[in-house]
Design a protein around this nucleic acid. Structure first.
Lengths: 197, 197, 197, 197
DNA sequence: AATGAATGAGATTTCATTCAT
DNA sequence: GATGAATGAAATCTCATTCAT
């Protein structure tokens, strides 16, 4: 009785709860028991799915990064001009940062023992996003960006600026409007440096 | 005789050791005993100078931030054109980030119990730097930056991009050349956007 | 299976062990680990039942006082003359003091931080006993005590003398025979002061 | 310059300070540094006069007990009837207890490592007092106490009752008037039990 | 499979005591 | 002699992990 969830669902529930708790509290201040409670299961059950706290953390990180990359991909592959898609991308990026407030932060200082593996996951996600951005710049309408701005560097700068603003937000706690911030950044980078005059 | 350091020096020695250990290990993985060892003193001595681990952390943060702000100020108040000084500022910024590798990271996820106080210190440092940058943009030679780029926003963007690159570095571990990165960023922001053609 | 004790029993086991160790060593010299060992459990388990050392101490005190009051009540509510019941009470009192040798002592200098709460528990126990004694004196056969000895004061004096002897014992270590001491005290207080007859 | 006190005086100053601090805080909660501060000297100086905390405690105990015994002796050897002198003794006793509130308490639970030596000091003081009391009872005017009350037992009872009341006071914190308490106790013990006369 | 009571390693912090000045 | 900065042993308490049910 009590039709149990299929196994995959319980794992995901744990990962969701882990994302919340690790996000709020960071790796060390996060309590396994709190994660279990949020997932609506017993403490011991977590150890049926994950070897230890660290593996749970890594699995959660991978899971969240994949989900984020997917949401960002949707924005970049939407229809519209390059400027529109880049703006949509940035808005989504900022929304994600604000939503998973603690998650990016928790990545900055991963548990020492798995620093390398964390870095690997983050790097992979970043490269995927970077490639998607580069592709957008490469195929953008001619007039969108200055001719001397190489697509790869443009992607680096856009991502860098976005991360910079996000970091600002995370550190300083000064809130900001995702849409207007996105527009300003895109404007700064994409507008042809012109004006002829 | 009188070989002993004057009192202020021992406090600073502890703060230096604390910066190293907190930087490498983060607040929670840092062990008080390790800090004492690096400072070449006994565990208990730290408690003569700081009430507890958290106060030591905050004092260390304040101390390091003040030192960083001072080094950045020197670059911005040096002689030279605005472009030269901004480039110098960014180079110094990147060097600091690479040197104090862990310190900025440790700020991202401070111990929950003193999150507010950490934020306060960081915000203050950031505002000081932002003001210095704004002043540079405001007094820059006319042709340095686009007319429609407000000095305050220019400062925000420059700082944001710098932080973005630094975060990239911290997260991804992909090393980069401070000078060339600085030049690219300044070029991107400062060059008049005309090209004339 | 089901060999485990029901939950209440483990708590009591801890309280028993705590009474022994606190009794022997006093609050500050008592080590949590020693209590755990005596209770046959792990150190951490104690913290599942009691918030910290102080709360354990207070719980132990309450537990022991309740048990003592109960044993004294049985003696005062037994059948027999007032003199017999008072003697029984004193004998029990002295036996308790000798058995829980350290317990009363540990109450005299409770940890400063919970002095008030300790005092409250002790006062409550003492008042209960005082009331029971007063009741005995009030309903005693007319010829038992001098007419000018008010029941409440008689109770105070009896209890005071008993505590005085006990303190003597605790301080000086001079052993004594509970029964003979009890008889002497009761004799002193209860015999009608007439002689005249 | 700065004519130093003769050595004996500094030792006594420390003992006075120790009595205060041990009295207030008990052996374990008393801090050596606090004692030094009250004595107006440096922490290290205490160790020139006493081997360690325990020896200081024992010396303080001896010093205070001697002083108390002396004050009590003066009352018992004063002029006046036995009843007057006993009353004076009890008043002094209660005043001492209230003044050195913590001292007797601190004796009840001495540091485990010197329990025996503490007990020895206490026992000696008590015996001296007991002998003085016995002598008073022995030489008292015939009509003062019942014939069947042996002087030694009378002394034991008087001292016991006094200690009982004091304990009550120490434990319960219920204040009382020394004079009236003294009179009641003496009255209870000394009045000839005839009434008849 | 799921649980949560039990565990104990390990961290912070205090404070009696030492000793260089 | 006098000092107090420095020390480190020892105590409490937390929490990831285990395992009997």
């Amino acid at each position: 009785m009590m039709a149990n969830l299929p196994k995959g669902d319980k794992r995901e529930k744990i990962l969701q709860a882990a994302a919340e708790v690790f996000g709020i509290a960071g790796f060390h201040e996060a309590r396994i028991e709190e994660i279990a409670e949020r997932a609506g299961i017993g403490k011991g059950t977590i150890y049926l799915y994950f070897k230890d706290k660290q593996e749970l953390y890594l699995a959660m990180l991978q899971y969240q990064l994949a989900s984020m990359v997917e949401r960002l991909r949707l924005r970049l592959e939407a229809s519209g001009t390059a400027v529109e898609r880049l703006t949509g991308f940035l808005v989504e990026f900022f929304v994600l940062v604000r939503h998973y407030r603690g998650l990016p932060a928790s990545q900055v200082r991963p548990p020492h023992a798995c620093e390398e593996r964390c870095r690997g996951l983050l790097l992979a996600a970043r490269q995927t996003i970077h490639q998607m951005l580069t592709q957008v710049f490469r195929t953008a309408e001619e007039e969108t960006i200055p001719e001397d701005l190489e697509p790869g560097f443009a992607a680096t700068v856009l991502l860098g600026m976005a991360q910079g603003l996000a970091m600002d937000y995370l550190l300083g706690g000064n809130d900001f409007d995702p849409l207007s911030a996105a527009q300003k950044l895109v404007h700064l980078l994409c507008r042809k440096r012109d004006a002829g005059g």
